[in-house]
Every structure is written in C-alpha cells, then in structure tokens.
C-alpha cells in the first residue's frame, strides 16, 4: 500500500466516524431500523489488510462510536467480531491471485451478488452481537430480532447507495 492510499483510507475512516456520530445516530426509521454505516468501513477495507490491523482499527473505531452512543464497549465488541472474521471470510470467497490485493471489496468492483454474499453475514454478526448484548437481561428476544432484521436491510441498502455514489471502479486486472 502506498502512503497516499493509507492517507485516503484514514480520511474515509474519519468521514465514516463523523457521519455516524453526528448525523446517522439520529436516523432511526420506525424506531427499529438503525443505520450503523460505520461498520462498512471495516467491511470495505482493502483485501490485503490482515486480521491484526483490522482488529486494531475496529477497536479504535468502536471505542469512538461507543463514546457518542453512551453504550460503552458494546459497539466495540460487535465491531471486533467483524474485524476478526473479515479476513478469513474474504479468503474463503476469493481465491488468491484472482484479484489485486490492493482492491476494496465493493459493489462497483465485485458486483452486487458477490457483495451481498460477502457483506450480509458480516453485518448480521455485528447486529446480532450488538442488539443482544445491548438488551442483555431484559428478555426482549423478538423485539431485538425485529431490530436486527430491519437494521441489516437498512444498512445494506444505505451502504450500496454510498458505494455507488462515492467509490470509483478500479481499472486493471
């Protein structure tokens, strides 16, 4: 990775974070569909990013979001789970050598069907951990399930729109 690439990724991370805590935090559709778009930053990291760097990035980003949500540790634990399985999950879906290692696994690069099969399980892991840890001890199983399903759909649609608007297609290979 070139240093320009790293800087542009860092800027993207900061933009995701600010958008999450300043705007998307107040955007909850029908009281059930939350928009946790920040987790797409971890999901869309370049393919070459290994588990350890993605864990560290997840930890910092999760802590930052937690501070604004007053849910200390819950976003962090959910995002760490995504950061941990991301790299392995990617290896299973992409055989090495077929794609440029520097590439991001976005809709525009990989196509809609591939992206959905890649991102849906990861988003689901995050939301299951988040909503069940958050409602621990209240016995609201089905209310949380409703929130999980609505939020997964909402985040996926939002992230596809964001990718089509702001991510460029990479040429070559």
């Amino acid at each position: 990775m070139t240093s320009i690439r790293i800087i542009s990724l860092a800027v993207a991370g900061i933009l995701y974070f600010l958008a999450q805590v300043l705007i998307l935090k107040n955007l909850v559709l029908f009281g059930v569909a939350f928009c946790f778009l920040y987790l797409m930053f971890i999901i869309l990291l370049p393919m070459e990013v290994k588990t350890i760097p993605s864990l560290l990035i997840s930890f910092v980003l999760g802590l930052g979001v937690d501070m604004f949500y007053d849910t200390m540790g819950i976003h962090t634990s959910a995002l760490l789970a995504v950061g941990f399985v991301r790299s392995r999950w990617l290896r299973m879906l992409v055989s090495s050598g077929t794609f440029d290692e520097d590439m991001q696994p976005t809709v525009v690069n990989m196509g809609l069907q591939w992206f959905l099969s890649y991102s849906l399980p990861l988003v689901l892991i995050h939301h299951v951990v988040f909503f069940y840890v958050e409602s621990l001890g209240t016995g609201l199983f089905f209310d949380s399930l409703q929130k999980i399903i609505a939020s997964v759909i909402f985040v996926t649609i939002m992230s596809i729109i964001v990718q089509l608007l702001f991510y460029r297609r990479r040429r070559g290979i």
């Binding site: 290994k50 864990l55 999760g62 540790g73 819950i74 634990s77 760490l80």
Partner: peptide, 21 residues
C-alpha cells in the same frame, strides 16, 4: 494464533468496559 489472542484480549477489554459502565 496471535490474531486470535489479540481478538480475545481486545474483546476482554470491551466486556470489562460494558461491565464497568
């Protein structure tokens, strides 16, 4: 298994934060 160990350590920190909060 260093990645797994790091994952466990960071999750432990997160759980400690949840508990203390």
């Amino acid at each position: 298994i260093r990645a797994f160990l790091l994952f466990v350590a960071l999750e432990a920190v997160a759980i400690w934060l949840i508990a203390s909060n």
